[in-house]
Design a protein around this nucleic acid. Structure first.
Lengths: 247, 247
DNA sequence: TTTAGAGTTTGACGCAGATCAAAACGGGGG
DNA sequence: CCCCCGTTTTGATCTGCGTCAAACTCTAAA
């Protein structure tokens, strides 16, 4: 009994935003110590999600938003006819479930690409607390807005870029996000399959594979399986901004 | 002098959400009469935007969100290299500027496709008021979330649909939105050019034109210039959900 | 009313990327 | 340790849509 209690306490400690290294990236960015404490109490529980498991499914009722504490999770939009497309790859510090607020129903599946851990944040509580903490409210709005901005970027990518540009943009985006989280900007593990990359970028897996090979041949990157090293960030950037065709 | 005052008053009256027919579609949906009155005071001013004029430009500082009272406005994301893509077509009741909250800078251009009128809503005031009116706060969140959901739909469209499916989905979307605003679901004016449709759908204007002609030949629609009549909503719907290829 | 220019339609042709196919690889479970 | 199956790579071929071009049609200004 005492042991159980202790475990729970350790869990709570681990969950606390106040001691979380992702503070500055995550929901409570920019809050005071006192405010942070209130946010701590928001977090209902920490929840592990095993590789391949669903964090939530399309159609399920919205209970909570989820802040990713560790791991890697993809979200997939589903077309009524069974077609499915990866809508995003999410990593630690990202907030998931924002698309569900409008209808109170999740519109996409969230699947862990590696063993992950998320903090569960009941939406009602978050809304309540943000009424009392203006900077929390503002930051929440900023997070939603940034998701919209991200989507606009993806729309631009899908609507007007050629395969090489899409892939280069994708790699640069991953690089930038890993870097923002304190990891290498030039060397990382791709947690998703070529097919998932393709789905996200509106390409077939063969095209993704071919284009990666092509990049490698040009000396832009070194890929081996899921391990990726960017050899020239600059050249990749050049690739993205040169619009060769599809004006 | 007296005349000027009177005009101002008439303007204010016309701007009031409490007497606006878009109440149920727009920001104040679901508020009580008293709460509505507070929202009325939010609206800084009503602003006319002439056809071809910019409501805001990419890069400009965010001051206000804009609720469209009448007219038709497109938003365009800009790629650094000058490439540009239509990110959305917005009509009365829609709220614009949501993408700018994250950075306090507009990320897209907003251009009126016909003479329009918008209500200017200072973001700070909206945030302040929504702290006191939970249902306003909730509805604002719902609106942002719905924008995210819409974007997911566009991503699905751009990433996995063929030209015919994209255009059919586009027409059905317009139909549904006109219908929700009390207009005909089957007969309306396209306020945008073929090129703008193409930009939104990730297609070239020639493809848009050809596909429309094709639809007409099949008896699905009747187009003449910008006037469009949908002859079979059902057949269009069928077209969207049958995934012929690009799995 | 005429005219200039923007927008639209239609045809011919080419190419980026999809599709089909098959071989090679790799990692997790027995 | 090996086997098996999912993943990846690479090649050959096909095709939907982009590109180029030219004619036609609105609209708005003169």
């Amino acid at each position: 009994m005492a042991t159980t209690l202790r475990i729970v306490e350790v869990d709570k400690l681990k969950t606390a935003c106040s001691t979380c290294s992702l503070q500055e990236l995550c929901l409570p960015a920019g809050l005071s110590a006192v405010e942070l404490q209130s946010v701590d109490e928001l977090i209902e529980r920490r929840r592990p999600v095993k590789r391949g498991d669903y964090l939530f499914r399309s159609g399920a009722a919205l209970h909570s938003l989820y802040a990713i504490r560790s791991g890697f999770i993809k979200s997939c939009v589903l077309h009524e006819d069974g077609r499915e497309q990866v809508a995003g790859f999410h990593m630690m510090g990202d907030l998931m479930g924002l698309d569900a607020i409008g209808t109170n129903q999740h519109l996409c599946d969230a699947v862990a690409l590696e063993d992950s851990e998320v903090c569960e944040i009941p939406l009602k509580d978050l809304e309540g607390l943000s009424r009392n903490i203006p900077s929390l409210q503002q930051h929440f709005h900023r997070i939603m807005s940034r998701e919209i901005a991200r989507d606009y970027g993806v729309m631009l990518l899908l609507g007007s870029m050629r395969a090489e540009e899409r892939l280069a943009a994708f790699l640069l985006n991953l690089s930038q996000r890993f870097s923002a989280r304190g990891y290498s900007a030039t060397e990382f593990h791709l947690r998703m399959t070529r097919e998932e990359i393709g789905s996200y970028l509106g390409l077939k897996l063969e095209t993704v594979s071919r284009t990666l090979s092509h990049f490698q041949a040009q000396g832009l990157i070194a890929v081996q399986n899921k391990h990726l090293r960017i050899l020239s960030l600059d050249n990749l950037r050049e690739l993205v901004s040169q619009h060769s065709c599809r004006s």
